[in-house]
Every structure is written in structure tokens, then in C-alpha cells.
Computed example of a mutant assay.
Amino acid sequence: MTEAQDPRTIRPTTRPTTKATVGMRVTHRRYVPYSYAHYAGNLVDGAYSLAAFGDVATELCIVTDGDEGLFASYSDVQFRSRVQAGDVIEISAELVRVGRRSREMDFEVRVVARGDEEGGGSAARVLDPPVVATTARGVVVVP
């Protein structure tokens, strides 16, 4: 069998199609456990938000391209308000630009509920409106 006949050497000639379109959005919600408190006042470090951005970016790439993608960069990261243990946060990624292999996204962490220390032990309250805690823009590359 020659190399040209060997099916293991055949390379696809067409690129897989993407479902990525500007405006697509993925949103996660999660409770921030007290084990993540890093500073006084149960404050959680900013890296927690960045890790959450990675999670929503991964899901968005799976939905659009069938691949987890690889984070290439963050830009314009802004910590606008605190995230603390006992919060319920909502993390979103919105596709703002689609390149041949790159996907540019806007990210946002919103605190939608917070533990209520004055209410005692397990008291909490829904925040209306939610508090925007962290924003960023990032680029993910897919194969």
C-alpha cells in the first residue's frame, strides 16, 4: 500500500463549520462557598472571577465549535465590586467577534444574591438589581 492509499494519511480538505455568531451568550450561576474566602470580610480574590470566565468561555466554544478552545488573552479586566463567600454569582460570556480561529468575548460577573449577616446564620437576600462585580474582554482560539 502506498502512502497515498493509506487512510491514516488522508487529511480533510474542508474546515469544519462553526455555529459561532456575534451575540451568542452563555450564562452560569454558582454559589461561592466559604472555603473560597481569602481575605477579611469573607472577600474572594479576583482570580475566582477569571476562572469562572474560563468556564463560560469553554462552554461557548463547545456550543459553537465542538471544541473547548484555548484561552489566548484577557484585556480590560475591571474589578468593580467585591465578590464574597456566600454570594450567588451569575457569569456570562457574549461573543462579540468571530475570526477564522479566534472568538472574542465580553465577560461579566454579577452578584445576584448575598448572605445577610444581620439576618443571622444562614440568612441571605436577592439583590435587585444585581451588582456587577467583574468585567473583561477575552480571546479564545479554536482549532
Rank of each mutant, 00 (worst) to 15 (best):
R30W: 02
L43D: 08
S73L: 00
D67T: 13
R114V: 09
P12K: 11
V44Y: 13
Q5S: 10
Y48R: 02
T58K: 07
N42T: 05
Y36A: 10
S35G: 15
A52M: 01
E68I: 14
V22M: 01
T64A: 15
S75P: 08
L127K: 02
Y34A: 08
R30A: 07
A133D: 07
L70N: 06
D65S: 08
E104I: 08
A51P: 09
A40G: 01
E104W: 01
Y34H: 13
V22H: 05
V98Q: 04
D6E: 06
L127I: 07
T27D: 12
G69V: 08
R29S: 13
G119C: 03
E3Y: 06
R8W: 10
G66A: 02
V141Y: 04
D6P: 08
T58D: 00
R103E: 01
S49V: 03
Y36M: 11
A113T: 01
E108K: 14
R82S: 09
A133H: 06
M1E: 13
T18C: 01
V131W: 12
A57F: 01
P7L: 13
R110T: 03
T18A: 01
D87V: 01
D76N: 15
R100D: 03
S35M: 01
M105E: 10
P7H: 04
T134Y: 05
L127R: 05
R97I: 00
A72P: 05
A72N: 03
G66S: 04
Y39G: 00
G138F: 01
E59P: 12
Y31K: 00
E117D: 12
A4M: 02
G121L: 12
Y39R: 06
V63D: 09
T64G: 12
R103I: 02
R11Y: 06
